[in-house]
Computed example of a mutant assay.
Amino acid sequence: MRHVTVKEVMTWPVISVGENTCFKDIAGILVTHAVSALPVLDDDGHVVGVVSEADLLRKEEFREEFLGERYQPQIPSGQEPGTGKARGMVARQLMSTPAVTVGKDVSVTSACRLMQSRGVKRLPVIDDHGRLAGIVSRCDLMKVFIRSDRDIEREIRENVLMESLWMDTSCVRVTVKDGLVTLSGRMILRSDAQIALWMTRQVNGVVDVVDELVWDRGNTPTGEAC
C-alpha cells in the first residue's frame, strides 16, 4: 500500500541562511518572509542548525531595562546574564543544533510523529547526502487530509481491497464522505474484516472508518448473495 511521502508535500525552494549571516539580516528575513524559523547551511549546503524567532528574542531577555524591572530570565547553569545565544551575532552562534531533520522519502505519518515527539513545527528536509532539499511544516502535512473523497475511495478499492488483500473482497462496498470511510458488505472471516479495516485506516486522508462489515464464521462462504 502506497503512503504519501514528505517530498510530495514539502515546500521548495526554501529560504535559508548561512552560518555567518548576521543577526539583523536574519531578523529581516524572518519578518519579510513571515516565517518563524530558518535552516542554517554550511558552505556545502548541509543543514547544521535552525535559527528561530525564539533564538533571536533571547537577546531581549537580557536587556538591562528588563533586569531593572526585576525580571529574572532563566539562565542555563554555569552562565551569566548576557552569555550564550543572548550575545550571539551570527547564525552559528544563535541557532539550535543539531537540527531535527527528515528524509525526503519518509512517509508523512512518520514526519508527523517526529514533529510531535521533538516539539517542533517544521522540519528541514534533506537528501541522501544531508543537503537541504525542502522544508515541511504542520500545514504541509495537513495536505493529506484535503484529498478528495473520490481519490480516497479509489485508493481503498484499488490498493487495499484489490491489490493488497489476499482474500475475496468482491462483496465489500466502500463509501467516503468528508474523509469518513464506511466499509459494508460481507467477508468470509472476521479476521479478514479486521485486516481490511486496519489497512483502510492507514490510507492517507482517511479521518475515520465506520465498520458495517459482516462475516461468515466458517472458513467457507455461506453462499449468500452480495
Rank of each mutant, 00 (worst) to 15 (best):
L189A: 14
M187Q: 05
R157E: 09
I188Y: 06
R118G: 05
V203E: 03
I195P: 02
V106C: 07
Q194K: 14
M167G: 01
A193H: 00
D168I: 01
D151A: 11
D178R: 15
S110W: 10
V144W: 08
L141K: 03
Q116I: 11
L132R: 05
S148Y: 06
D168L: 01
S184D: 09
S107G: 10
L161I: 12
R113V: 11
L180Y: 13
S164D: 10
S148P: 01
M142L: 09
V203D: 06
M142R: 12
W198N: 13
S191K: 15
L123K: 00
D151I: 10
C112S: 12
I188W: 07
L183Y: 04
V108R: 00
S164Q: 09
I152F: 08
L180A: 09
I135N: 02
A196M: 10
S184I: 06
V181H: 06
L165N: 07
V160A: 02
S148K: 13
A196D: 05
K143L: 12
R147I: 03
T169S: 12
V174T: 13
S191N: 05
V203H: 04
S148L: 03
V176Q: 05
S170V: 06
G205Q: 12
S117W: 01
L161H: 12
G205Y: 07
S110N: 14
D127G: 12
R147G: 00
A111C: 13
K177A: 12
D151G: 08
V203K: 02
V203L: 09
D168Y: 01
V106H: 05
G130D: 11
T109W: 13
G130L: 11
V106G: 06
C139M: 14
V172A: 01
F145A: 11
M167T: 05
A111R: 04
V172P: 01
V160Y: 00
S184T: 08
I188L: 14
D178V: 10
D140M: 00
R138I: 03
I156V: 10
R122L: 02
R118L: 00
K177W: 08
S117I: 09
S148M: 04
M142D: 07
S117F: 08
V160D: 01
V144D: 04
V125T: 07
R190K: 14
E155R: 09
